Amino acid sequence: MIPVDLTTPIQAHGEELRTLELQDPTFEQIQKLGTPVSLDGNGNFTINTQTAFKYIPELAGVPPSSLKTLSAYDLNNLCWAVWRFFMTKQQESQTKS
C-alpha cells in the first residue's frame, strides 16, 4: 500500500478523504489496464499518465467522479505513486512485537 496525502480533500463514499491509500495492483488489474510505465530509446522510463489515471480509482477504492476535483499537483503525485508499484520494490509491512 502507498499512502498519498492530498493538498485538498475529496469526497468519496460520503466521507472526506485527505489521504488516498493505493493498494497493490492485482494481476487482473494489470492485465486489464496495462503497464503505466514505458522505456524510451535512450533508456529513460516515463509514466503513461492516461494509464496511471485509470489505476488511481481502482487502487484507491474510490469512484472516478471523486477524483475530478483533484489539483494537478495531487494528480501528479498519484501518478508517480502508481509508477512506484512497477518500478520500485515494495517493502514488507513490519509488525511490532
Rank of each mutant, 00 (worst) to 15 (best):
S65F: 04
N48S: 12
E21N: 11
G61K: 09
T88R: 12
C79L: 06
P3D: 15
R84K: 14
F53L: 06
Q31A: 12
D5G: 02
T26E: 02
S38Q: 09
E16H: 12
T26G: 02
L59W: 07
N77E: 13
F53D: 15
G61L: 00
N76G: 07
T49P: 00
N44Q: 12
P36D: 14
A52I: 05
P63T: 13
I47R: 04
I30D: 07
Q90C: 00
A12D: 04
T7L: 09
G34L: 07
E21T: 15
P3S: 08
N48T: 05
P57N: 14
E21Y: 07
A81W: 11
T8S: 14
I47E: 03
W80M: 13
T35M: 10
N48G: 02
W83G: 06
N76K: 14
G14D: 09
K89Y: 06
K54I: 00
V37C: 06
D74C: 09
Q94R: 13
L78D: 09
S71F: 02
N48K: 13
L70G: 03
P64E: 14
G43A: 01
R84T: 14
N42Y: 10
L22G: 01
A12T: 08
K96F: 09
T7N: 13
Q94H: 06
E92F: 05
W80Y: 15
Q90K: 15
F53C: 02
T7G: 06
R84D: 15
E92G: 03
S38H: 07
A60I: 01
G41R: 13
W80I: 08
D40Q: 04
T51K: 13
F85S: 04
I56V: 15
Y55K: 08
L70P: 01
Y73P: 00
T8V: 15
F27D: 03
F27M: 10
P63H: 12
N42T: 10
P9I: 13
T69F: 04
D74K: 04
L59H: 08
E28G: 04
Q23M: 09
F53V: 01
V37T: 08
P63L: 11
T95W: 11
S97C: 02
G41C: 01
N42F: 14
N48H: 13
E15P: 00
L67I: 01
T49G: 05
E58I: 09
L75E: 10
T26V: 04
I30W: 03
S66P: 01
M1Y: 07
R84C: 04
G43V: 12
L70R: 07
E58G: 01
T8R: 15
M87W: 03
E28L: 11
Q94M: 08
G34K: 06
A72I: 12
Q31S: 05
A60R: 06
D40V: 05
T46Q: 07
R18V: 03
